[in-house]
Write a protein that binds this DNA or RNA. Sequence first.
RNA 1: GCGGGGAUGGCCCAGCGGUACGGCGGCAGCCUGCUAAGCUGUUUCUCGAAUGAGAGCGAGGGUUCGAAUCCCUCUCCCCGCGCCA
Length: 441
Amino acid sequence: MIDIHLLRENPEMFRKAFKARGFDESALEDFFRLDSQWREKLKDLNTLRHEKNDITASISSLIKEGKDVEDAKGKVKSINERINSLETEMAEIENARTKVLNIMPNLLHESVPVCKGDENNQFHSFWGNARVYSGDLEEFKNSTAGKGKFTLIERKPVSHVDLLSSLDLADLERASRVSGARFFYLKNRLVKLELALVNYAVDFLSERGFNVVEPPYMLNLSAMSGATDMETFKDTLYKMEGEDLYLISTSEHPIASMYMGETLESSSLPLRIAGVSPCFRREAGAHGKDTKGIFRVHQFTKIEQFIFCHPDESWEFLEELLKNSEDIFRNLEIPYRVVNVCSGELGNLAAKKYDIEAWFPAQGKFREVVSASNDTDYQARSLGIKFRGKSGNQFVHTLNSTAIATTRTIVAIMENFQSEDGKKIKIPEVLVPYTGFDTIS
RNA sequence: GCGGGGAUGGCCCAGCGGUACGGCGGCAGCCUGCUAAGCUGUUUCUCGAAUGAGAGCGAGGGUUCGAAUCCCUCUCCCCGCGCCA
């Protein structure tokens, strides 16, 4: 949630962010109309409550003096009626105001490119030496502003979907029978590869000062809507029938809400937390995209980085999160580019977001494997997470970034580490101590 | 699931129908010729330019002129019993 006081004082700042994100600016007018109504009624309400408190206090002393209090009681009764109706009116106005406020997006960092469409995300950097099939060279060069290093290959690598069945690494058909499309049974060495990725990421982040957490896989509505923007996420989340519980779509949400309603000591900041959990996503509205294989699925495991920090430090921490994720992909030897996500494609919470997109030689494209965001105080305000500062309590800043999403990283390994004949997959060196084998064939 | 006990400010804890006591910690200041002790103030949210006012005792209802306090429903925690990987 945005800062209501800041909004009242600097509406133009928010109007600018609305425009850049392609939001309907009428929400601002709605807000100011409702807010001034609300404030006016609050004044009346407080006056009435004051009167009431005075009379109630006087009743106490009247009783002690043995005087009649019926008259005073009557007055309070009529004041109570007015208070009640005012409160009802105010609750309605406040609900409407909160609704408007909840859909309002965060302000933007000045470095965020203003435009719409993923294709307009700003190229930031490239790392690696990509294996590029001649037919994909154009796409590769365009995607890297000509700065991408590459080695041309004669044959396009086999798709991960074909490898899954030819090497007996997953059973998608039976999964679809028992659970539906976009589910999978992972099999054999791919299971170990997934566990290796998890363990590798956990060790990596532990070394970089993160505390590891396995969070609850379900959250109640209050925590979930504090941690995310339910308006956008309602199509993503699975709801448990008959329970006030939602399956998490990322461990970002249970980690963010871990400190819901708390005021932290400033000496405890920054809090670096790494979460390991499955992620459940309905992927509604993704029909027709990546329908085969395990690239886009309803359930996958993810290791997530999360930071609670002092507001002055969050921009440095965004770079730290990006660096951690980049280092992981460098260590895995997967070529990637980093993009600065443009204003029109940012989520409501993020003030800035970097995506790491790995090169997928069989698809001939860069695809998102990591998202690193600074949500500034937006998420912390919705969740009520503060710290005790020198000049009073303030909201912390929160940041999150993927470390490894297993399924996509597995696909990236299958495409980038495939032998020429498409019959073997080499295991990235850093993972071998975790897998116990160096090839899948 | 059953019975019993609980939930009060960052933390600990008192109050159990008349408007939240005290301690610890944090912050600010004072004092002391030394980072110790002591003293004073402050410590949540909302509205207001401000003196100020209002709200707030796990959540939501109810009774009452007045509820942290009494009643009802719910959530969570602790202790026992039961069940269970």
